[in-house]
Design a protein around this nucleic acid. Structure first.
Lengths: 115, 115
DNA sequence: CGGAATCCGGGATGATACTG
DNA sequence: CAGTATCATCCCGGATTCCG
């Protein structure tokens, strides 16, 4: 029971590349499909759709459809996802602060290991 | 310059499934290869080695070799990685608190969408 | 004990085209 | 606008073997 929902699996689910991007992008309020597509550099339409579906299924996103023409769909974070967002921000902030350190560490490592 | 070290790439590097496990397992002090292998359920020897190398290259781990027989190798976190560890703990804590919520959300979603 | 090297299958991902 | 469908590819990661 509840198989497939261990802490490990849940973490690498929400911490996945595209999940993080979406969760961060949607944190400032409801956001539309196309806005996400533009905000997240490098994502394909397919991966955007798939990741949105997974996040919605996991109860992280609420999908709201406005039956207008043209159609309008907005995604917003659930309270649970908002809690997570704070933790994700800590990760991305750390990454920003240490980009250079990591880049330098790589250069040094590669210099020591030319093989 | 510094290509391949964007915030996005760095995040999904350190937030990867095995990286998180290793970073958490090594946070309490130096730990040996075999201890990691036992501590991290489901990891293969290959992935353990590869992930350790990447983390070492990125300056997250220090690898110390004791020239004894049998050989003894210990891994410990760098200060930079210790900072990251706090953020990772926040994620895993969140995951523990919300496992059930996610599992229930999935059941509800799947019940609504039987196709 | 702590790896490195090789082989290999399958799921993740991209590209493209079509639709209500 | 917000997707879906299909096909092709690629590389992640498991299994296995060998080594100092």
């Amino acid at each position: 029971m509840l198989s497939g929902c261990t802490v490990q699996e849940l973490v690498d689910r929400v911490a996945g590349k595209w999940s993080v991007c979406i969760l961060v992008a949607a944190a400032d309020g409801p956001i539309r499909f196309t806005e996400l597509e533009r905000a997240i550099s490098g994502i394909s339409r397919r991966m955007l759709t798939l990741t949105l579906r997974n996040l919605e299924r996991d109860g992280m996103l609420v999908r709201t459809v406005y039956p207008t023409v043209p159609p309008r769909v907005e995604y917003s974070l659930t309270p649970m996802a908002l809690e997570l967002h704070a933790a994700l921000l800590a990760i991305t902030t750390w990454a920003e602060r240490h980009r250079m350190d990591v880049a330098l560490a790589r250069e040094r490592y590669d210099a020591r290991t030319p093989l």
